[in-house]
Amino acid sequence: MFSLSSSHSYFLYQGRCDMRKGFDGLCGLVSAELDRNPTSGEVFVFLNRPRTHIKLLHWENGGFVLYYKRLEKGTFSLPKAMDGHVSLSWAELVLMVEGIQIQKSIQKTRFHI
């Protein structure tokens, strides 16, 4: 309960979101704009226009969970590789939420089954 991990899929809403939206409004954006099912168990990430507020919408057994963070200073920065892609990795999300911006990085290839 109330846990997000690297096993989830993360999707960033590319538009700017009105942070007054609640569960139903955000589910409407997921269905209409991202063309995904809000109750799939995936995590959906929403930012406001100045990128000072972030909401994460997630379906768990029995209902929706909404994570909300408001910055008092600074902004959330988008990952560099966001050229039209809406999918985020767990690492990209953590870096974005924690305010860590990597200027230059090289990801070495790893074996995947």
Score class of each variant (00 low, 15 high):
residue 1 M to P: 12
residue 2 F to L: 11
residue 5 S to Q: 09
residue 5 S to I: 04
residue 6 S to A: 10
residue 7 S to P: 04
residue 9 S to E: 06
residue 9 S to F: 01
residue 10 Y to D: 00
residue 13 Y to V: 01
residue 13 Y to I: 02
residue 14 Q to W: 04
residue 16 R to F: 09
residue 17 C to A: 13
residue 19 M to L: 11
residue 19 M to F: 07
residue 20 R to L: 07
residue 22 G to C: 09
residue 23 F to T: 13
residue 24 D to P: 02
residue 25 G to T: 06
residue 25 G to E: 05
residue 25 G to V: 03
residue 26 L to S: 00
residue 27 C to K: 12
residue 28 G to D: 09
residue 29 L to W: 02
residue 29 L to V: 07
residue 31 S to F: 03
residue 33 E to T: 14
residue 36 R to H: 04
residue 36 R to M: 05
residue 36 R to V: 00
residue 37 N to L: 05
residue 37 N to A: 10
residue 38 P to I: 02
residue 39 T to Y: 07
residue 39 T to V: 09
residue 39 T to F: 06
residue 40 S to R: 01
residue 41 G to M: 02
residue 44 F to A: 09
residue 45 V to W: 00
residue 46 F to P: 01
residue 46 F to S: 01
residue 47 L to M: 07
residue 47 L to R: 02
residue 49 R to Q: 12
residue 51 R to K: 15
residue 56 L to V: 05
residue 56 L to I: 02
residue 57 L to E: 00
residue 57 L to Y: 01
residue 58 H to Y: 07
residue 60 E to V: 09
residue 60 E to T: 13
residue 62 G to D: 09
residue 63 G to K: 03
residue 65 V to Q: 11
residue 65 V to F: 08
residue 69 K to R: 14
residue 69 K to W: 04
residue 71 L to I: 03
residue 72 E to Y: 06
residue 73 K to P: 11
residue 73 K to F: 08
residue 75 T to K: 14
residue 75 T to W: 08
residue 75 T to S: 14
residue 78 L to H: 02
residue 80 K to V: 09
residue 82 M to N: 08
residue 82 M to F: 08
residue 82 M to I: 06
residue 83 D to A: 12
residue 83 D to Q: 10
residue 84 G to N: 11
residue 86 V to C: 13
residue 90 W to Y: 14
residue 91 A to Q: 12
residue 91 A to R: 13
residue 91 A to V: 05
residue 93 L to M: 10
residue 93 L to V: 05
residue 94 V to I: 08
residue 94 V to N: 10
residue 94 V to M: 08
residue 95 L to G: 09
residue 96 M to H: 03
residue 96 M to V: 05
residue 98 E to L: 08
residue 98 E to S: 13
residue 99 G to T: 06
residue 102 I to V: 12
residue 102 I to E: 15
residue 103 Q to G: 15
residue 104 K to R: 12
residue 104 K to V: 11
residue 104 K to F: 04
residue 106 I to C: 14
residue 106 I to V: 13
residue 109 T to E: 09
residue 111 F to V: 14
residue 112 H to C: 15
residue 113 I to W: 09
